[in-house]
Amino acid sequence: MRSPPLLALALATSFGLTACGVDPASTTAADAGAVAAPAAETGAFPATIEHKFGSTEVTSAPKRVVTVGLTEQDALLALGVVPVGVTRWFGEAEGAIFPWATDALAAAGGELPEVLDSTNGIEVEKVAALDPDLIIAINSGMTEQEYALLSKVAPTVASADEVDYTSSWQDITELVGTAVGKPAEAEQLIDDVEGQLEAAAAEHPEFEDAQAAVVTPYEGLFVYGEEDSRGQMLDELGFEFPGALVDPETDAFGWSLSAERTSDLADLDAVVWLDYEAADAGMKKLFESTPAHRQGRWFDISDANGGAYYVAQSMVTPLSIPYVLERYVPQLAAAVDGDPKTEVQVVKD
């Protein structure tokens, strides 16, 4: 069975770092020419950033930033900083820069970054070869061992949250802004995007307190929790997370319930499936017997249909959110309108 989108964040990656450290002096830096550091805000440096592994001090505006997490490159680009290296987690896009971020890349006048791979964990030696002066690893699931290795290469910013992959897009943007000397600009960016979410919620009062969840087939029924970015977006649009799906035994970003629990989706006002076609026949039969299915209170976002939208729905960033809202809000509105005849439009882009 296929793993759910970005479940690799916590389940499908196996960090296999060698026990030895990385000597930056023994690596060859990527020759990307002179990189001018974007102007920092007055008084932004030195900046001390607290995170789960301690604290990191950044003394001046970085010129060569490498990201090893899923979403941090978007926050950088939104702030006018072009990373020299990014990490591909899933999806296909040149330079791992997706459609919602290409305008920001062009506006910053930067070249496409070198792309690292996340399949076997953080590629520490390749990170070092890019000669970074800042490494951002907030949304990466980085281990303490990896942090120790990367910190020998350059100042490294980890997640401020103890549980991996639960940092909100706001917190990620704020940490990135502090690290590159643009904390006020980051706050303004957050305010602007939150305004778009608030406007969408205001235009759809029917979302208020309606119950909705994002789920996918993985080891039964996998539920993205309230602390996951997908669950957070539903919350910001006014939806309520269904208590029936809560797993009190975990504080992770999501959890698997038995396939039989698919019937717990029966009374939700909106069920957002990621890759419904990956469900087995038994799970589909259970779901298709529920009022939620019969009354059209659901829709599927799949890689086959959605393309970039499928990726964007999981990569929740200040750049992807406007892109998602344009597509997601009409789908949610059609799902919760109470009319079984209303078809939810399939997004294909």
Rank of each mutant, 00 (worst) to 15 (best):
V22W: 04
E249D: 15
T59E: 14
L116N: 11
R88N: 14
G54W: 07
V214I: 10
L268Y: 04
S3Q: 12
Q196C: 03
D209T: 13
G69Q: 06
Y218I: 03
R261Y: 13
A107H: 06
A158T: 05
T18P: 05
W100F: 09
L112T: 06
F241S: 06
G109P: 09
T56P: 01
S168G: 10
E185M: 02
H51G: 06
V86L: 07
Y276Q: 11
H293R: 08
L17E: 10
D133Y: 12
S302C: 08
E227Q: 13
F53M: 09
A279M: 13
Q188Y: 02
G231I: 03
V246W: 07
K126W: 08
E198T: 11
R64Q: 10
T262A: 13
T27I: 12
V347G: 02
V157C: 05
P340R: 11
D275L: 10
D349E: 15
T59L: 10
V246H: 08
A29N: 14
G225V: 08
F239G: 00
E206K: 07
M233C: 05
S314R: 02
S167F: 01
K63F: 07
F53G: 03
E326N: 07
A104Y: 04
A154I: 04
A104C: 12
G254P: 01
E114A: 15
W89Q: 01
V115F: 07
D251K: 12
L197S: 03
A334I: 06
V68A: 12
D247E: 14
L134R: 01
G95P: 10
A12N: 11
V271G: 00
P242Y: 02
P340G: 08
I190Y: 00
S314P: 02
A201W: 02
P5I: 14
A30W: 13
P113W: 06
Q345K: 15
